[in-house]
Structure formats: C-alpha cells, structure tokens
Design a binder for these strands. Structure first.
Lengths: 242, 242
DNA sequence: CTTCGAAACTGATCTCCCTCAGCACAGGAT
DNA sequence: ATCCTGTGCTGAGGGAGATCAGTTTCGAAG
C-alpha cells in the first residue's frame, strides 16, 4: 500500500475511495509550486485564478483593515484547498501568507469539473471538503462573536488538532505547530499580549502547552469538557458512503 | 419584459443571461414551500437534505452555544440560497429561523448538477453566488474580530443595503428591514443594550436611522467614509461575462 | 563571540462593552 | 378595558481584554 496524499486521506474520511477513484484524484494534481515562508502569495486580480491543494506546509488567509489591524480568517494545512473560494472573483478579496515553506499543486477548474463528470462519488467528496471548510469559517465566526478568550483559544487549538489527526499529523497528545502567538492573536481577534496570558493560564491549569512550535495536550478529555468542544461541525466521524 | 425573479436578477449581476439561460433557470425551481415567522426551519439530520432559493421574506442562520447565547451567522434575503452549505452534511450544523413569513423554492442537487452540465455559464453564475455568500461570511468574521461596535453595525447595515439593491429592494436612501435590535445584537456579537446605544449614536450623527422596520440612510457617502465600507468583497460591480 | 531582531513574556492603566435593573410604549389576546 | 409580552430605550457599575511600555530569551547573521 502506497502512502496516500493528505488530500486523499482527508476525502477518505467522508467517502471510502476505490483504487480507480484514487487514480482519478491523482490526475487533478497539476503543476507543483513552492512558496517561501513570509512572502505573501499574491493573486494578480485576474480572472481564471487557479486554486491549489496543499501538499506540505502551513498557510493562512487574512484581511487587512484600513486601520492596519489584520484578521486571519483560516489556516490551511496539508490536504486543504487554497484559494478555491475566490477563483470566480474579479478582485482578490483576501491575502494569503505561507507560514512555513509550502508545496502545493495547482488545480485547474476545468480538470475539477471534468473529474466531477466522470466520478460522481469523488465530486461528492470534494464538495464535502469545500462545505467543511466553510463550516469551519462559520464556527470561527461563532467563536469570535460569542466565546471568551480562553474558550476561543482552546477551541481553536482543538479544532486544529482534529484537522491534523485527519491527515496523520497529530494525536490526542499534541502536534507540531509553526504558528507564533501573533498568528493566534490575529486569528482569534485578540491582542498578542492577551493570547500570551491565556496560554499561560491553559498551561498552569495543566490543560495544554503551546511552546517552541509544539502543542502538547496534557488532558484531552478535560480540555474538551472545559471549553465545550463539539466537533460535530467537522462532520468527520468515519466514512459514510462505502 | 417579464419581471425577473430575485435570484435571476442577482445572477445577472455577474453574468448577463440569455433568454435560454433564464428558461433553464426556471427549471431549477422545484416545489414551493412557505414558512412562518419565528418557527425554526428544522432539518431532520438526514442525508439528501434539500436546499432552497428564497423567493420572498427574510431568514437567518444561527448557532446556539451551550451557554445559551446565540450567534447569527448570516441573513438570507430574496434571491439567496438557503441551506446549500450543509446539503452534504450528516448532521445539521446550524439552525434556521424565518424572520418574516417566507416563500422558498426547493432545489434538488440533481437538478442543479443537471443544469450545470447543460449551461456552463449558468453554472459559473451559481458558483459565483455561492462564493459571494462565503465572502460575506468572511467579511462578517473580520468585522466581529476587528471592528468596533459602531463600525461593525453600520458596515453590516450597508452590506444589507448593497445586497438588497441588487434585487431591487433598496436604494441609497434606505430600505425596509424587519430585523429587531436583538437580531442585530445576535448577528454582531454585541448585547442588545449596546446595539441600541450605537443606533442612537448613528442617528444623532445624522448618518442613519434604524426605526420601525425601516432603515433610512441620511448621508450615504459620509456613512461609507465614516466606517470605511469597501464593497469589493461583494464583487457585484456590473456583469462581467456578456 | 557579539550583535541584532523576532518572539515570548510581564505589569500598570484604561476603555469599550457587558450585565443588571428598570421604565415606556405598542399591539394582541382575553 | 386591562393584561401581557415583545421591543425599544436608559442609567449605573463592573469586567474582560486592549494598550502602553517595557524586560527577557534565543536563534541567526555578522
């Protein structure tokens, strides 16, 4: 058995994929591109922008307000789509920053539609992945609107854990995490100062440690209870269509 | 010339539609359903949920946290999709409340895919509409995360204005709006008390009045400047593909 | 080995917004 | 006619988190 791509692993969580379908999936991958950490991936503001599938590395999409503050909307990890939402837009509506060095495969809209036509189960799986991405943005919005700083932070780190587990990059004990406290602050709608205090509290409560690029979860169950994490919205409890 | 449906009007803002395409659009509309104000539209948590296109009335989708607070994620107005995101989900991840009496047409996923295959331009337009919905959620998230109460509130009411104008239900002078201050509070991540104060401030600054189901914009330009409203993210500045 | 800069961390102060508690008003129900 | 509930509105007090102004740590570059 060959190692699956993160993307294939992820889709497999929703639809059990046959060898033929896995092969069809491979044809989606276009040109491989790599991007450097810190340098924004810029879109030229033209039609026919292309989307990517992340092979390795972490990325975030964000918006900057006129005041200069920034809000990170979502993080992409291996197996995730990149820029799918705005393929059809005339003007890019957000920026994209690679957090680490990134490898990604270009995906052409035409190829996507082609695969959809030929393998409907794959179409379902891909659309599921897109819906799931949107569900995460929604949950993020709810967190910022209604959860306090500690719940919000822990909730976010738990979501990340769940997502990474899906592609084999985390266990309930923790995971490697290249984010800085500034990234967290920009994502959570908090100041970096306050994120720091919240992380200290989580550490002192022996729930979770965020340090040196490593998230260590000391008590998974207690953490989940403490912040009322309900992963239903991720809809990833084992493949449904077999 | 027959009056277009709100949905057709909206798509027309992105792709100029031919008579043939308008006819194809009509075939999308399935069974007509109506819902009563206040009574949640409940999904049975089953696969093959259906989506709707709103013909008349206002709706909101929201989530309730264990603590009992609620966060409204988005409002749907005539011409908008309803429940498209979660068609593929096993468990409904949010609730839907009709704010007024609502008329909506059921849309079957199969019909949608069928139309996509036959009229690619229509497919593009529909996918554009879906992307635009997501872009609005993203902008909503950014607002909650980084804008203060006044900017956030005014920004939201301006977005609503722009959306309603697209389906002919608003001008730059204002629009009819069935939302209560509680709706605003739940959507903006504020308390109803504070929403009330913010609305007073907007009124006293002669920018905008929110009263008796009517939003009156006193000075459109000044309001836009004041809260730095940039509608690029709505991507609706005239049809692109002709 | 030293310098530099980014990231982590801390204390003091301030402020925006929440919570609580209450009043006013309108429309529907009895 | 009056009750009652939902909505709008207001004041007082408190708190979560922002801002300001640092120090410390550590790895990378010189």
């Amino acid at each position: 058995m060959i190692a699956l791509s993160p993307f294939a692993r992820k889709l497999g969580a929703f639809v059990a994929l046959s060898d033929a379908e896995l092969a069809a999936l491979d044809q989606l991958y276009g040109r491989r591109k790599s991007f450097l950490a810190g340098r924004d991936i810029v879109y030229q503001g033209q039609i026919k922008q292309s989307a990517y599938i992340l092979a390795s590395g972490w990325v975030c999409s964000y918006k900057i307000l006129p005041s200069g503050t920034r809000q990170i909307v979502e993080f992409q990890i291996p197996g995730d789509f990149l820029g799918l939402r705005s393929v059809l837009f005339r003007t890019p509506d957000h920026n994209i920053e690679p957090i680490t060095r990134v490898e990604a495969s270009e995906v052409l809209a035409s190829d996507l539609l082609d695969v959809f036509g030929r393998t409907p189960r794959l179409a379902t799986a891909v659309l599921w992945a897109a819906s799931r991405d949107e569900a995460m943005v929604v949950e993020h919005l709810v967190g910022i609107g209604r959860r306090d700083a500690l719940e919000r932070t822990a909730h976010f780190l738990l979501e990340l854990c769940t997502r990474l587990m899906l592609v084999g990059m985390a266990t309930t004990d923790g995971y490697a995490c290249p984010l800085s406290q500034y990234h967290l602050a920009d994502a959570l709608g908090l100041s970096a100062v306050h994120v720091n205090r919240v992380l200290r509290e989580l550490r002192e409560d022996a729930l979770l440690t965020f340090q040196k690029g490593q998230v260590t979860i000391h008590d998974f169950k207690r953490l989940i209870d403490r912040v009322e994490f309900d992963r239903t919205y991720l809809d990833q409890d084992g493949p449904l269509l077999r």
